Amino acid sequence: MNYIIEERIPSVLEHQVLWEAVGWGNINTEMSRSSLNNSLYGVVATVNEEPVGMGRNVGDGYMFFYIQDVAVRPSMQGLGLGTEILNYLLAYIKKRRIENGIAFVGLFASEGKETFYEKFDFKNHSPHMTGMFNVFDS
């Protein structure tokens, strides 16, 4: 299947459609609108103008980056689209980081998707470093 990858932030509707397609639940579109508007960079893959994949970078744009919302419609998984999306996101980070400086790149992998990210040298650094987070939902 032929897809087109565009370097742009997903629209609120594209984000919602793909978020739900991969089983991440429902999303508050007002909250996602503000989040998307504050993204550093994004890519959207489409087939016949319908979204089939996305990914975006958030962070300070110099030293700390976070890969967010890498999602590929289940019917399109296993075809290399996720790899291509991640390559775009990583290329952006490599261009933005300060010359001869470090770039710390974080992400959370969905359960069962850890090996996909390990192919890009992402590692679980426990027990020496532990990824931690808190969710404020009320």
Rank of each mutant, 00 (worst) to 15 (best):
L90R: 11
T130R: 15
V105E: 04
F108D: 07
G23K: 08
G78F: 05
V58G: 03
L40E: 01
M63A: 13
G106M: 08
R8Q: 15
S34E: 14
R33H: 14
T29R: 15
A91M: 13
Y41W: 04
P10W: 01
A21K: 04
E14M: 02
M31N: 02
R73Y: 12
E50S: 12
K95F: 08
I4L: 13
F122S: 04
E99S: 15
G106A: 13
N57T: 05
R8P: 12
K94L: 08
E118P: 06
V135T: 11
M63K: 11
K95Y: 09
N37R: 14
K123N: 11
A91G: 11
A21L: 04
A45Q: 06
T29V: 15
P10K: 06
M54G: 01
F122E: 05
S126Q: 12
S138K: 14
Y88G: 01
N26W: 06
N124D: 15
G53W: 00
N48V: 05
R96I: 00
Y66G: 08
G82H: 00
Y88K: 07
G23P: 07
R33E: 13
H15R: 04
N26A: 13
G53Q: 00
I9L: 12
S11N: 04
N57G: 00
I67L: 09
D69R: 01
H128E: 12
P127G: 09
A45N: 03
S39D: 04
F65S: 01
N87D: 11
K113Q: 06
L86R: 01
T130N: 15
N48R: 09
E114Y: 10
